[in-house]
Design a protein around this nucleic acid. Structure first.
Lengths: 128, 128
DNA sequence: TGTAATCGACTACGGTTGTAATCTTGAACC
DNA sequence: GGTTCAAGATTACAACCGTAGTCGATTACA
């Protein structure tokens, strides 16, 4: 089997902001990532570069040389990241029960009518 | 209004383990907390004491003197903690849409049949 | 060809986290 | 009353995180 992504090192919150830019569009240069991300977070270019380096070190991002600079692209899919984080939450807080999470959100009135309608529709779909 | 818990400082993962012990039963002495959590995590008593101190500093735990020692009890409810963490996740990953999280879990096949049945039942209940 | 701009690499630094040892103080025991 | 024990307080320290400045090399322009 092809080189399985060995260790999914954790992506921090600031790092995630960088990933979001790359998930939205890639490959990007460091400058393009900064343009996409820095203003909203009040970051300098240097900060974005540091985060990119760390993400490369964590093997969450890969680089391809393009002349004198690099083009960055995600190495982990957003879907996988989301799954990992979601499962972590469900495990840590609800003993692994996704239904527990759902019940909790309902209890906390964190579900909008729209949420309920959409979930209902999804359930129907799943049951088909 | 009665002294609102000013700043819900973040509780780290190790700290959560300590909180779990206190959420399960409280008040407890530091030793009792250690008995409850240290073995499973391979911690020494000193580690548990450090975590308790930090939790007190973060105002997540309160103390009551009991002779020469303290009795510790949670100051934040588990429910509130869970709600906060869950919302954070939903915001960070699914643009605030709980249905988005649910759809994602479904997609990732992270929902068991049991989950589905329970969620269905909950939905029916909510719709009543 | 010398100089300026650009880019990634390296360094920095305070805060948090994980993990723990040591210090201090008060109580209990002999 | 001096010694030992238990408990919290203080200190430690490496890794990680947020945020950024500086360095060295390469490129491009004058």
């Amino acid at each position: 089997m092809a080189e399985e992504s060995a260790n999914p090192e954790r992506i921090s919150e600031a790092e995630q902001a960088v990933m979001e830019a790359l998930w939205a569009r890639s490959p990007l240069t460091a400058n393009e990532v900064a343009d996409a991300v820095a203003p909203a977070r009040g970051w300098t270019l240097a900060t974005v570069k540091t985060l990119l380096s760390r993400l490369v070190a964590k093997q969450a991002v890969q680089t391809a040389p393009d002349g004198k600079r690099f083009l960055y692209s995600p190495r982990v899919a957003r879907v996988d990241f989301a799954t990992g984080e979601s499962k972590r939450l469900v495990d840590r807080l609800f003993g692994g029960s996704a239904a527990g999470l759902f019940a909790h959100l309902a209890d906390a009135e964190a579900l909008t009518d729209k949420d309920l309608t959409q979930i209902e529709a999804l359930l129907k779909e799943l049951r088909k």
